[in-house]
Amino acid sequence: MDSLFDEWKTSIPKYSVKFKGLFSSLANKYTASSEKVVSLGKHFELQYELYTYAFFLGLYSNIRIGFGEVEKKTDFSNPIQTWGSKKTTREDYTYIREYMFMAVVAKSDVDFLSLDKGEVESKVVVNQLITVLEEYVYGGLTIISEKIEDGINPFLTNDSFLQLLLKSGFDKS
């Protein structure tokens, strides 16, 4: 098959347990109507949506942070291949997986010639790519939590997360 993407998307990426509070305050564990979500202060209908958002925020802001050596990690048990599948009230956005994959490939140091030559195992490369993903997510989640720690909750309006993404530093760099 020789598809790195197909291997990569079966992974379940992780995040630092220190961000668990962010996930419980900003994202629902279960699907709800959009109106209800905002009124409850939960902007994201699903936890992996916040995860995905954090990835792109970290990516565009060029903030990539590795896990500490003894840092505890956690996940929400959904492999990437399940993200964005069609739900009743929502559009299918499975395209997102491929874009995330492209981004981590672009930002990784993997030697794909060695991979094709068989000098490196694909499993090793997939782990490298997942690490890149997790590092940008770490960066994005750090940006969000710093905003909240500043005092006034900046995420009170419906467009706060969009605005934050629009202002993210990438396009200005």
Partner: peptide, 18 residues
Amino acid sequence: FTIRLFDQRWILIHFEKI
């Protein structure tokens, strides 16, 4: 807006450089 980030691909706003 947050839903549109995903459903309408708005999250890819700065993706062209990547």
